[in-house]
Structures are given as C-alpha cells and as structure tokens.
Simulated scan of single mutants.
Amino acid sequence: MFHFVRMDKTRSTAIGLERLTGRVKGRGTPRNETGRFEALDRVAFDDGWAEAEDDLPVVRTHVSDERVTKVVTRNTSPDVPFDRSLNPYRGCEHGCTYCFARPSHAFLGLSPGLDFETRLIARPNAAQALERELRRPGYMPDVLAIGTNTDAYQPIEKDRRIMRDVLEVLQRFNHPVAIVTKGSLIERDVDILRDMAALGLATASISITTLDRKLARQMEPRVPPPARRLRTIERLAEAGIPVRVSVAPVIPGLTDHELEAILQAARDAGATAANAIGLRLPREVSELFQDWLARDLPGSADKVMGRVRQMHGGRDYDPSFGHRMRGQGTHADLLRRRFKTACKRFGLAERLPRPRSDLFARPPKAGDQLSLF
C-alpha cells in the first residue's frame, strides 16, 4: 500500500508515483509532484505492501466548475498572430506528455503532472461572460483564438457543451474565430462553423504530431488516433471550412522524419494550409517529458534530448521570443527549409485567410429599442 506524507519542499526529494507503479492506465504521466508555488510537498513511499499493478484502481477524471466574469485573455506575444484567446477549460484530459500548457496548473495549486489530466476546471458560464464582453461599448472585434492553451474539444466537452455555447454567441455577433484542436468532436459543430465559414468568419487547425498510431497512443493517450484526425480534416473541408494541419509539436529525433508524410496526408484529406511548431519544454514539462522518454522509449531518449538542446542553445528550452516555437541552429534551419519545400510541393499555404472582422454586429437584446432604418 502507498502512504503519503507532507514535507517541507526545501528538504524533500519527491519520489514520484511512477517509481512505485510504473504508469497510470490511459494517462500521459503517472507523476504528480506538487506545484511549484506550494510550500509543502506530498511524497509517496512504498511500505512493502503494494498491490499488483493490474489491481491498481483507474484514476478517474474529476471536473470542478469555475464561474467567470471575464473569459477573453489578451496577449502581446510577437510569436502568435492573434491578440486574444478563450479557453473553456483549465487542464486537458487528452494527457499529451509534451503539452506546454501543463505548468499553468501550478497556478491553481495543482500538479502539472497527473492533476493536469485528471483534475479539470470547466467554465460553464463562458458563453455568457463572452457575450457581456462583446457587448461592451468599447469592444473592437478581431480574431478570437480558441484551443491555444488547452483543447476546447477534449472528451468532457461532449457532455459539457461549453464550446458549442461559445460558438453560438460568436455566430450571433458575426465575430471571427480560429480554432486549434486535436479532437474529432469539432465535427459536432460543423453546422455552425460551415455557416460562419461561408461568411469568412471561421477557420480550423487540426494538430497531428505523428502518423504512427502506436506512438500517438503513447504520447497522446486520450487523443483520437492520427487516421481519425485526418478524417476530421476531410469532413471540415467537405463542409467548406478552411482547414490547416498543424504539425505540432515536431519532436526532433522522434517525429521530425514524418514532416513531409504528415503534410501530404493532410493535403490529400483536404487541408489547404500548414504550420509546424517545434517541441517546447517549459518548466515542469521538461522533466515529465524526459521521464516519459526514459520509461517508454529509452533507446531514443539521448538522441531526442540531444537534438532538443541543440535547437535551444544547449538548454532544454529557450523561452525567448522568436526562438521558443522554432528553435535555432542547424537542425532548426533544416526543418524550416524542409517545411517550406514540402508546402510548395504539396500546394499548401503557410497561412489560412484571416477571418474577417467587418461583419461584427451586436444583436438586439430582449427589450432593446429597434432601429427604424
């Protein structure tokens, strides 16, 4: 059996559940060290009475609600082509081992490890908060990015339908939106996205990291398999929605050799544009990702991390603007040249048409005086 003790973080060395159990079924990481802002650490140790791994309970997903007054987040990063975004959820059940958003869970007093995948925060009134913001007299419309931190179409969205409510608000206001997702659940909302796209108001990006089903299952345990995501591209394209494939992240020494194959498969499915973003390992993500490599792909660990450090000036991650999403050095330059050459060969643009903002209009509310003209 496992016991847990609370220890002063300045004196403790976290053992980590992975050293006791090896893995957690259906999850990206078994590690669950306490967040970096907490004064005390929760450390597990084996008292010698551990059960067999097959008898360990499955870690269930727990969802809490957060009532928000403001839901649009602003940014001034020169690395992204948008200045505002929206996230219906905190944490992500997809459980991608490499997810750069994991450190954000520490702000909630939770672990960027297993907590990030299993202790989720939903914002059930996100649509209502969004409508209030869009109705503010000084609000100026521009593209709203969704899915840039955690995935709006992760599994819990099927029942929660928060993203669906958000899209209905955006449609009523003729507000432009750009969605990034790994989830095939976006197909549920094709009716809204099709009508918005017909007015030039919506685009979608589908992330594909690898075409290898087994590797994808290891890295992204609760994400639809690659073939299913290609089918999602096909269905969105058939509905007239501009679709981009996002080869993200490109993992040097592990998935970078698939770059051209992914681009071609996505083009064949109907994608008209593409982008590629290098692996990012900020804060706790580096240790979690390296632990996954050592556990699942030990023969590739040194090669992968050696390439990663070559692309980040000898570090696991360089957060500098201009470098954090692309890397630098010979290998990074080679990947960029390969990407540009492949896009040209397959007829893929490097950007989708920017959704238009000039159709934005605030619909009348109940009781409003209607215009005579």
Rank of each mutant, 00 (worst) to 15 (best):
F2V: 11
F4D: 02
M7W: 03
D8I: 08
D8G: 07
K9C: 12
S12F: 15
I15R: 15
R19H: 12
L20W: 03
G22W: 13
R23Q: 06
T29D: 01
P30M: 07
P30A: 12
T34I: 15
E38F: 00
D41N: 12
R42A: 11
A44G: 04
F45E: 05
D47P: 10
E53T: 08
P57S: 00
V58D: 06
V58G: 03
V59K: 12
V68W: 03
V71C: 15
T73V: 08
T73N: 08
T76L: 11
T76E: 09
T76D: 08
S77P: 06
D79H: 11
R84G: 09
G95R: 10
Y98N: 11
F100K: 03
R102W: 08
P103A: 06
H105T: 01
G109N: 07
F116T: 01
R119W: 05
A122R: 06
R123L: 13
N125Q: 14
A126V: 04
A127P: 05
E133S: 09
L134C: 09
P141L: 10
A145L: 11
G147Y: 06
T148P: 02
T150S: 06
T150Y: 00
T150Q: 04
A152C: 10
P155L: 02
K158V: 07
V166C: 14
E168W: 10
V169F: 05
N174E: 14
H175A: 08
A178Q: 12
V180I: 13
S184N: 13
R188E: 15
R188A: 09
A198V: 08
A198T: 06
L199S: 05
S205V: 02
I206K: 03
I206V: 08
T209V: 12
L215W: 02
R217D: 11
R217S: 11
P224C: 06
P224H: 01
A227T: 13
R228W: 04
L230H: 13
T232F: 14
A237G: 09
A237V: 15
E238S: 10
I241L: 01
P242S: 09
V243K: 02
V243W: 03
V245W: 10
A248G: 07
A248W: 00
V250G: 09
P252Y: 07
L254K: 05
T255N: 12
D256K: 05
E258T: 01
L263W: 04
Q264L: 08
A265Q: 02
A265C: 02
A266M: 05
G270L: 04
T272R: 09
L281N: 00
R283F: 14
L288E: 05
W292T: 15
A294Y: 13
R295Y: 13
D296H: 04
V304Q: 03
V304W: 01
R307T: 05
R315V: 05
H323A: 11
M325Y: 13
R326T: 09
G329L: 12
A332H: 11
L334W: 01
R337I: 11
K340Y: 02
F346P: 07
L348M: 08
L352P: 04
L359P: 01
A366E: 06
D368W: 11
S371I: 00
F373T: 00
